Simulated assay, not measured.
Amino acid sequence: MNTTESARLVWFKSSHSGNEGGECLEVAADATAIHVRDSKESGGSQLAFTRTAWAGFVTEVGRSRPN
């Protein structure tokens, strides 16, 4: 994905993330992929997952969370 395409994405940060820094991710979706980046390095590298792969990831994270 080039910089112009990345700039068109609408990024969302978790409501659990504060403004004091830390380890936060931002997520954006387009027609074919889910994009993930470090909120402190918004102009840096990002990962892109197919929607199917992202759904599987989120499902597994939900299963492994302690109650």
Rank of each mutant, 00 (worst) to 15 (best):
residue 30 D to M: 02
residue 10 V to K: 15
residue 26 E to K: 08
residue 13 K to I: 15
residue 15 S to E: 07
residue 45 S to A: 15
residue 6 S to H: 10
residue 7 A to G: 06
residue 4 T to M: 06
residue 19 N to C: 13
residue 66 P to G: 14
residue 47 L to C: 03
residue 7 A to P: 01
residue 24 C to N: 11
residue 54 W to M: 02
residue 37 R to V: 09
residue 12 F to N: 12
residue 67 N to H: 14
residue 14 S to Q: 11
residue 26 E to V: 10
residue 47 L to S: 01
residue 61 V to L: 09
residue 62 G to P: 01
residue 21 G to P: 05
residue 56 G to W: 07
residue 1 M to A: 05
residue 65 R to D: 00
residue 28 A to N: 04
residue 46 Q to K: 06
residue 27 V to Y: 03
residue 10 V to A: 13
residue 4 T to K: 07
residue 37 R to P: 02
residue 59 T to H: 15
residue 34 I to M: 11
residue 35 H to E: 00
residue 11 W to I: 08
residue 52 T to L: 11
residue 14 S to F: 12
residue 4 T to Y: 06
residue 65 R to C: 08
residue 39 S to F: 04
residue 25 L to I: 15
residue 22 G to C: 08
residue 65 R to S: 04
residue 17 S to R: 08
residue 11 W to R: 05
residue 31 A to D: 14
residue 29 A to C: 13
residue 8 R to L: 13
residue 21 G to N: 01
residue 55 A to F: 05
residue 36 V to N: 03
residue 1 M to H: 08
residue 20 E to T: 13
residue 17 S to D: 04
residue 2 N to A: 00
residue 58 V to Y: 05
residue 30 D to H: 02
residue 57 F to D: 00
residue 52 T to N: 06
residue 51 R to D: 00
residue 48 A to V: 10
residue 51 R to G: 03
residue 42 S to L: 09
residue 22 G to I: 07
residue 5 E to P: 04
residue 42 S to T: 13
residue 60 E to H: 13
residue 22 G to W: 03
residue 66 P to C: 07
residue 38 D to R: 03
residue 59 T to V: 11
residue 26 E to S: 12
residue 27 V to Q: 01
residue 64 S to Y: 10
residue 25 L to G: 07
residue 46 Q to P: 00
residue 16 H to F: 15
residue 29 A to I: 14
residue 64 S to V: 13
residue 52 T to P: 02
residue 45 S to I: 13
residue 32 T to L: 10
residue 38 D to I: 05
residue 53 A to T: 09
residue 58 V to A: 13
residue 36 V to C: 07
residue 9 L to F: 10
residue 38 D to M: 05
residue 58 V to M: 06
residue 8 R to M: 12
residue 11 W to M: 04
residue 61 V to D: 00
residue 41 E to H: 14
residue 53 A to I: 04
residue 50 T to Q: 06
residue 5 E to S: 09
residue 60 E to I: 08
